[in-house]
Design a protein around this nucleic acid. Structure first.
Lengths: 200, 200, 200, 200
DNA sequence: AGTTAAGCGAGACGGTACGTCTTGTCTTCAC
DNA sequence: GTGAAGACAAGACGTACCGTCTCGCTTAACT
């Protein structure tokens, strides 16, 4: 905070808000989810606990807000070339995002916590995962319109077949998700759905 | 406990062990992961906290032990008919296990917690998930031997393509996992790998 | 607590402080020293354990504070008549205080615990016993000034000779301390120091 | 224990008994009363807890037994010279015993604990303090018979007047108990009771 | 000589209290 | 009227001892 004001009648402090979000993010990457406590965030952000409780119902809401629009920024599928290439690029980006980026760490932690917390699960899905899924089905629908994929394709199932194995490896098996793996996923998907494109 | 002994040279009390595992399981399904406390387990199991700490390093270890061999019991893929039918049955069983069974609830909670706890992740994978994966790759390899699947199949990737979307729906999107979905997964998989069997 | 505030910038809650002291006192008289536990005090006072640990290093500090100024209130020697009468009254009051009053019970418990705890012993002496001794020597010095006692009297030893046997009976032998006994103590003391007053 | 037997039908092991008493004594002098735990005694004595509980109801019983006949050995008043000299020697010995000897430490701890434990108080008095008092009154009675003290002397009160101030200093004020103090006690006592001996 | 039974070391057991930690609420004061 | 400070009630944490118990070994006394 530093030179920031200490309370005023202008409404909430943007400086405090950002300090909290950053502190939460830092604590998560440095000490893991258990190290993210409201007390710790307040201390690191130089903010009173009450300020946190005033604006966020719980610490997961802070992380949700910290996640922000990172998914849209990092994971909007390209629409630049043939569907095969765009999908390969998207799955590679997804794998990289989930395993190596800071917001990916936040997302993994939230998905993990969502297994214990149905309310968080609902918010996470409606605010972050559903829009992301929308971006992905949209790209597939455009490929259908372009005649690259069959007209009777179920885009929901299709997305699951593509991203599901990536999430599975990240969340469950912990195995590395290499380009060879994601590329093979795309190839298998296209082969199964009789793509006119030849897989590499 | 009742007639059970209260400590002796034989080592640990089997009655206490079972009471703890059952109490942990009950608390998880009744109150969720946050409701599983060592204090609560001890109280419900009629066991001293020290007895719990003597044998389990943490509460997740209790859940891990409570999971026991449930995966092997519920999720060993059948080898009774053509690979298509066995896979369809297996994915249906997996979906049912994850979404509706008590041990499935435990597994989901542990996978969730594993996102915050690398040590638990490692144990969960080596003790439960790797053997399960082994059972699944084995079934695929037998299909390869039987000529039902191509000889150059990568069984690891194949398993990911099959079960990955199921876990994804359960853990991430929360969408229902109906037989139609899992059957379609199997069909797509077989189509992609040029199975000689005709999908239904 | 009831309508009391729950923490604020003024510092500690006076209501909590008093509830703790009273609970400790009650527990001591009802269940004895072993029945005085931080847990029990907290429960009875309707106070969080942390609040107790914030302000008192240990349970004996609570009792020490509960003792407060009871000694000064109950055991300040009168200066109303001849030294013989004042001393007789004082020793009778001391015996009554030690054996039959609530703060006397607290003092006995603390003196007992002080045998196991040098730090408590030091605090008990400096905060309670030394001032009490001061009050007693002062009365003797006034008697010296009044010519009732010899000028070369060692007031420290004199106090020990008077109150020592009373404490001894209370703490060690457990024998009753009747007025006849304390009166005889005063008589012996005055006779030994050649008082001009005639003992009764 | 070493070469000691491990149970037989001769009855209890003397080696175990002595090891327990010594361990208790050591722990008391080394770590204070709070450091005397049944667990700790068992560990240091190389003895099973059950062996302790078989023979002693509680840890204070161990200390009581450890005290043994130390009082009789150290604190039997001499009967060698004039009462004045014997009393002076006795009070000096008492002061030394209480403040500087190991059994004195045990006695102080027990008297302290007796303030919290009426049952211990009763046993301590009947087994140790009453006999000791008996030894002291006896010496006074012999002085009465020898004409050194008046025939109407109340020996109980007299003992209290002599030893009370010593215990008081040791247990309550913690002040040093020097020979000058105890000698003055004897002198005052003899002067008050019209001794034919001239005080020094 | 084999059996019996008591005392033993060992240590797990159900408990209680410890002192610490974090949560989410509340109150006050500075700005 | 926000925000920093921080006390509060609540309650779980993991530890230390308590006193009880069961066990298998050792050993003398009694078949």
């Amino acid at each position: 905070m530093g030179d920031g004001h200490h309370g005023n009648r202008h409404g909430r402090s943007e400086a405090a808000r950002e300090a909290v979000l950053e502190a939460a993010d830092d604590l998560l990457t440095e000490r893991g989810f258990a190290g993210v406590t409201v007390e710790g965030i307040a201390a690191r952000a130089g903010v009173a606990k009450q300020t946190i409780y005033r604006w966020w119902p719980s610490k997961v809401d802070i992380l949700l807000e910290a996640l922000g629009s990172d998914l849209a920024q990092h994971l909007t599928p390209a629409d630049r070339g043939p569907i095969a290439e765009d999908l390969r690029a998207h799955l590679r980006a997804l794998a990289r995002f989930l395993t190596r980026s800071d917001p990916g760490t936040v997302l993994r932690a939230l998905v993990g916590q969502a297994q214990h917390d149905p309310e968080l699960a609902a918010r996470l899905r409606s605010e972050q995962l559903a829009p992301q899924r929308e971006r992905e089905t949209e790209r597939l629908l455009r490929a259908v319109e372009a005649g690259e994929l069959p007209a009777d394709l179920d885009p929901g199932s299709a997305v699951d077949q593509l991203v599901g194995p990536v999430y599975y490896r990240v969340l469950v098996t912990g195995e590395a998700v290499l380009p060879a793996f994601t590329d093979a996923l795309v190839d298998g998907f296209l082969r199964a759905h009789g793509s006119v494109e030849k897989p590499s």
